[in-house]
């Protein structure tokens, strides 16, 4: 279980997240909704250790994450699909995926310093790659291509595939559907449902509240850094206040 308690994030005098609390139970899909600048991305960054929390705690399976740096968090089974994809544009699709699974090799000198061609024979690595290619056949076709030359949608697939290469148990996604055509948004949401069936726990930040709440069990609504509402997906969808103010659906 992921537990965030009274988490605060600041950038200088900007108070991006104010005493936010939330929980995600194993096997749940939880959505975080809110307008631009509400602090959703800052919250995710603080959970994975990319931004320091000035206050509050984050724990994941009896482990405190808030004292760890980002690469240590990766080793606890948490992966992030960051806002804006953040793929490595001047490296190949395959290299992006390999690096996504870096944590499996981090302590092994042979893996780190041996030729990549040896590493590719690693059975675990092959399994992880196969799984990602099964989810995103497009990535297999484009393996050798520079990530920067992929289309926006393909880069999103790569960003998700890279996070999956870490074989995470908790997957955080920051607006994975932004800029995608409606059918791709549906595909993305279907993909998350499939991943949950495989046992992943998912925390999803989305602008497209409607799409997110259709697959989520529960949701939280953020406004200027605070969590101002929470409930089951049904409750949030039904609440007239939510519908008007935050979800952008009349």
């Amino acid at each position: 279980m992921l537990t965030v308690e009274n988490l605060s994030v600041r950038y200088g005098h900007i108070h991006a997240v104010r005493e936010a609390s939330l929980t995600v139970e194993p096997g749940e899909i939880v959505a975080i909704l809110g307008a631009n600048g509400a602090g959703k991305s800052s919250l995710l960054k603080a959970i994975v250790g990319l931004e320091p929390a000035v206050d509050g705690t984050v724990s994941w399976r009896e482990q405190r994450l808030d004292q760890l740096s980002a690469h240590q968090v990766a080793h606890t089974g948490v992966a992030l699909v960051p806002e804006g994809r953040q793929v490595l544009p001047t490296m190949s699709v395959r290299d992006n995926l390999l690096l996504g699974g870096y944590k499996h090799h981090a302590g092994r000198l042979r893996d780190l310093l041996g030729p990549i061609s040896w590493l590719m024979r690693d059975v675990g690595l092959q399994d992880r790659l196969d799984r990602v290619f099964r989810l995103f056949p497009r990535l297999e076709e484009r393996q050798g291509q520079m990530a920067g030359s992929l289309s926006g949608g393909e880069q999103q697939m790569l960003a998700t595939g890279r996070a999956l290469m870490a074989s995470p148990e908790l997957l955080l996604l920051d607006e994975p559907s932004i800029g995608l055509a409606p059918n791709l948004v549906r595909d993305t949401m279907q993909l998350l449902v499939g991943l949950r069936q495989e046992g992943l726990t998912i925390l999803l930040v989305e602008q497209d509240a409607h799409a997110a709440l259709r697959i989520a069990d529960r949701g939280y609504v953020m406004e200027t850094g605070r969590v101002v509402a929470d409930g089951t997906a049904k409750e949030l969808l039904a609440s007239p206040r939510m519908r008007r103010a935050y979800l952008g659906i009349a």
């Binding site: 994975v48 980002a70 992966a79 490595l88 290299d95 390999l98 890279r162 870490a166």
Partner: peptide, 20 residues
């Protein structure tokens, strides 16, 4: 892989960190 990890840090430190 180690060399690629060094390069990854030079391209995008944050995303390299998140991968471990």
């Amino acid at each position: 892989l180690l060399g690629k990890a060094v390069r990854a840090c030079s391209i995008n430190r944050g995303s390299a960190e998140v991968s471990g």
